[in-house]
Every structure is written in C-alpha cells, then in structure tokens.
Simulated scan of single mutants.
Amino acid sequence: MSKAVRYERFGGPEVLEVQEIPEPHAAPDEVRVRVTAAGLNPMDWQIAAKADTAARFGITLPAGFGTDFAGVVDEVGAEATGFAVGDRVHGGAIGRSVADFVLVKTPAADLWPTPEGVGDEVAATLPVAGLTASAALAAVGLKAGDTVLIGGAAGGVGVFAVQLARLAGARVLGTASEGTFDFLRGLGAEPVAYGPGLADRVRDLAPEGITAATDLFGRETAGTALKLGVAAERISVVADGPAPPPGVRKAGAYDAGPGSLERIVDAIRSGEITVPIAATFPVERIREAVTTQAERHVHGKIVIAL
C-alpha cells in the first residue's frame, strides 16, 4: 500500500484526506516516480473546490490532489524511454502529485531531469509557477528597458515573474501588501500597495509611465495599466479568472515556449534566481498547508514533504 491525498467531494481543505491506496506500478510505456516533494499552486485547491473548475482540467471524483512534484524514478516500463531508475526528476501531473508515487507516460512532455545543485523542494515548485511566469512575460513581449507592473508579485508565480523580468533588463514594480515590501525589495522589485488608488501610487513611483504589465491575481493590475495608457497587447493576465479586458493577453503554463523551464533551472543553478520556500509541511498536515496558501499571505512557495 502507499499514501495519496484524495477527496471524494468538492470543497475547502476539509475535504482532503491522506488515504492508503494500492501501490501503483509502471505500465510498459510509463515510468514511476517516488515523490519526495510536491509544490502547491492556487489551481490545486481551486480544482478541489469547484466541480466546474475541475471539469476544465478533466478531473472527476474521487480525485487525487496537486500538480507539481519532484522525486526519483524507481520503476521503468519495458517500452518507456528517456529515463532510467535512479534519475532525479521533477514534473507536473494534474490531480496526482501529492502521493508517494506518480506514474508518467513516455515520451514525457511534463517530466524533466533535476540537475545537481537543485534540491527536490525547489524543483517541486517549478513547473506551474515557473512556466506561468515565463508565459505571462513572453505574452507582453517584455524586453530590456521596459518598466513593468506585476500584480501579485509576492505570490508563488510572482516571485518567478519578478526575477525573470529583472533578468530581462526591465524595471519591476510589484503590487503586494505592505508586509511583503521588504521581501519584494530583496527580489529586485519596487513594491507598491494594491487596492484603491493603485494608479496614483504607480504614477508616483514611475512618473515617466509604465510600458507593460502582467496580472497574476485578479484583474486590478490589468485595469490599472489600461488606465495608465499601456496598450492592451502589452498587458497579460493568468489564464484562470474572469475574462480580461478586450485585447489583453491570457497566459498559462502551457503557453510557455520550448526550453522555458530549462532556462529557469539554469538561472537557479547560477544563482541568478532564488526560490523562496515559505513553508514545508508533512503530507499529514495537507489541510493546514492548503489553508495557509489559500490565505495568500505567504512569501513564496508552499511545499509538501513526502
């Protein structure tokens, strides 16, 4: 038997249970990963909360939980390609990652080698957040010399977006609560409080104007950027959430270009990007972990240890 977080009805963290399930084994075209860490994303608890959200991702009850994971390949099917027993890997498996084992079909588009110098906790935070941040910035054509406003800059996607934008040579203004300002400054962003009056505060910080924006939480930042005269095609929003204003780009992890995650991993290894781990919880405290993340006051990523 093995452990997996599962739920049999939609709802809040209270529906999540650590269950004993039969140990899965790799089919001929699969590899099995012994999961050591799983990174949480807002999409994980949003899928578990609502049937219509789950349906968009092909999730039906009863269901597993989580998407991002890292671990070690410990079984390889006779026809599987690309990986060997003992390989350290990280990847994405929607509705399946918070479990002792994850099965992945090969050839695998959502499984990557984890290089030396990158720990499993860090690797487990990368696929959804890293790729979403990369796609959101690519959607607005971010370039050196831009002044970009990033909404939700202290969140799990925001910490990647801020650093990627800085690496691209942009000046970064990041919306957040005042309690996260020092944290954002440490990542290279100039913090600005979200909420009523955001446009005026951005004008005070950047009187010459902003040239691009990406909204990683809600639609306030996108609306503010339009108000400040940014062209709609230079504004992006994450794929989940209400429809954006006309002309504003939508972007998600699956929109990231080839090699995006590999470039992020290289930047982590070289020290150009840091991955703040806000907290690590044992799998038995999954409800507490999800509650903590859903409050959206954490600085960085939440990880589950298995």
Rank of each mutant, 00 (worst) to 15 (best):
L16I: 09
W112R: 08
D68Y: 10
S2K: 10
Q163P: 03
A168R: 15
V283E: 14
I273Q: 03
E220Q: 14
V238H: 10
T214I: 04
A256T: 11
P191M: 04
A253S: 14
A189R: 09
F57Y: 15
V230H: 04
G151L: 06
L126M: 12
A129D: 09
L306F: 15
R285V: 00
T280D: 07
A243K: 12
E190Q: 12
A213S: 15
E116V: 12
G300P: 04
A168N: 06
R32Y: 03
Q163T: 11
H90Q: 08
G247K: 08
E14V: 04
E262S: 13
P24V: 09
A256V: 11
A161W: 05
L131P: 11
A129F: 04
D74G: 04
E30S: 03
A289H: 03
P196W: 00
K227R: 13
A253Y: 01
P242N: 04
A144V: 02
T53P: 05
L173W: 04
D120P: 15
T132M: 09
F160I: 02
Q19I: 02
L16Q: 01
V122T: 15
A109Y: 00
V148K: 10
N41K: 09
G145I: 09
P62Q: 00
D146V: 10
T175A: 08
Y254W: 11
I59H: 06
V202F: 06
Y194R: 10
I268P: 12
A99W: 01
R171H: 07
I150C: 02
G71Q: 03
E178D: 13
R234L: 06
E288M: 09
G218F: 07
A206W: 03
V15W: 04
I268F: 05
P258E: 08
P282F: 08
E121G: 10
D110I: 00
V238Y: 04
V102S: 01
G158C: 09
E14W: 06
L142P: 14
A222I: 09
P113G: 08
V89T: 01
E262G: 15
G241N: 05
V275Y: 02
R32K: 06
I59N: 01
A136Q: 05
E8G: 15
V298P: 11
E190I: 11
E116D: 15
